[in-house]
Design a protein around this nucleic acid. Sequence first.
DNA 1: TGCTTACGTAAGTATCTGCTAACGTTTATT
DNA 2: AATAAACGTTAGCAGATACTTACGTAAGCA
Lengths: 107, 107
Amino acid sequence: MQQTFEALVEPRRRDILALIRNTELPAGHIAEAFPDVSRPAVSQHLRVLREAGLISERRDGTKRLYRFDPAGFADLRSFLDSFWDERLELLKTAAEQEERTSHARNN
Amino acid sequence: MQQTFEALVEPRRRDILALIRNTELPAGHIAEAFPDVSRPAVSQHLRVLREAGLISERRDGTKRLYRFDPAGFADLRSFLDSFWDERLELLKTAAEQEERTSHARNN
DNA sequence: TGCTTACGTAAGTATCTGCTAACGTTTATT
DNA sequence: AATAAACGTTAGCAGATACTTACGTAAGCA
């Protein structure tokens, strides 16, 4: 959870995620997409993303291929739901309560 | 977006959010819930949360009442959906493609 | 008008973090 | 075996940030 937020708070890492969202890419190619920072910087970001479970790594010869991993988003989603959906849940419960009240009225 | 992540990456601020998720509370009461930090520290956190649109402030005499505001979560949710739901969309598209292929086979 | 309550704000500090430069490592290639 | 390619890792540094202490402020009350 904390690891997920720490990984995603950095804009560069969100950019990297967006880049490999649909395609598997080698580290060098990812680094080339960010000319304003060095290759090691990108490598460090990839490490953070990997340890957060947001991307997965695969070796192919001297290359390391990275791709998006939705697993790391699970706890972020549950966190969001605990705030967002709980309110919907309250509305739903209120609606059901109203439902029962209406039925009671009809009996 | 960035403001939202920066507000939520701090565990203390998530704790504050969880505390006032369902109830409106004055700043002093919120601060008392966190005995390991000073009152100004909490005040600073409340400021960050407010500027991120995650909580709203209301004055009542000398008191300032804070409560959860779901508005700030909107862009976080859309960010999450852009990664999570897009993959579901891909699956859906693939399914529809398969659907069309099956129909073509039957003609 | 003073005093108290309930806060926020500012300055300063210790810690964290993203970056670069330099180096290390593993896998082909010759 | 030697070299190159494609990386990751480390040390060190500049900037960001969460904290504390001290101070400022606005609303109620005597």
